[in-house]
């Protein structure tokens, strides 16, 4: 089973990330059983049936506004935020908003172009689950990549993982 990082540990995960191709209308979709992340458009089209389904998550692309998901957050256990390219940093703001402004306590998963070099930033912004693309890292490499979560031991700023900035957390010598 493929592995990903959840709360700083390697875990098995076989959730599918459902991607619509251009010809597919979200309304026409039938979902096979099993854990799956559906695109935001599919969620909107099938909210009624999908609500409360076990193992269901919704994924948003980087241009999609997390605010639109807010009325539904109580019925979703996991949100995945896509990085179409790892240099597209919008999902950092989306994750931070989900955690701080919208109070989402479920899983926030980073998907798409996810590299170990972003892990530290992702975790700081509220991602608890990090899923590099299939084949990006071997299990051994992913194990090794856990070290990137600890690239910096004491960051300066307040963020989701450390809600206070260093100047409030520590007594710094003048």
């Amino acid at each position: 089973m493929p592995k990903l990082i959840k709360n700083g540990q390697l875990v098995d995960d076989d959730a599918r990330i459902l991607v619509l191709d251009e010809t597919q209308a979200p309304e026409e979709l039938t979902l096979a059983a099993g854990p799956v992340f559906v695109p935001f458009a599919v969620w909107q089209a099938h909210k009624g049936q999908l609500s409360g389904r076990a193992g269901l998550g919704v994924w948003l692309d980087s241009h999609e506004d997390v605010a639109e998901l807010v009325p539904d957050l109580d019925s979703i256990s996991a949100v995945a935020l896509n990085f179409p390219k790892f240099t597209d940093g919008r999902a950092y703001s989306s994750a931070a908003l989900l955690r701080t402004r919208y109070g989402f306590t479920g899983e926030i998963r980073a998907i798409g172009d996810v590299m170990r070099d972003q892990f530290f930033f992702m975790q700081r912004c509220g991602f608890d689950t990090l899923q590099p693309k299939a084949g990006k890292y071997s299990d051994a490499q992913l194990e090794e990549a856990l070290a990137s979560l600890k690239d910096f031991s004491t960051p300066y700023q307040a963020a989701v993982d450390q809600p206070e900035p260093l100047f409030r957390r520590a007594a710094r010598a003048a």
Partner: peptide, 13 residues
């Protein structure tokens, strides 16, 4: 400078 150094949300503007 300290605030902006490795700001996690604004590393990929």
């Amino acid at each position: 400078r300290q605030w902006s150094t490795f700001h996690p949300e604004f590393a990929f503007l």
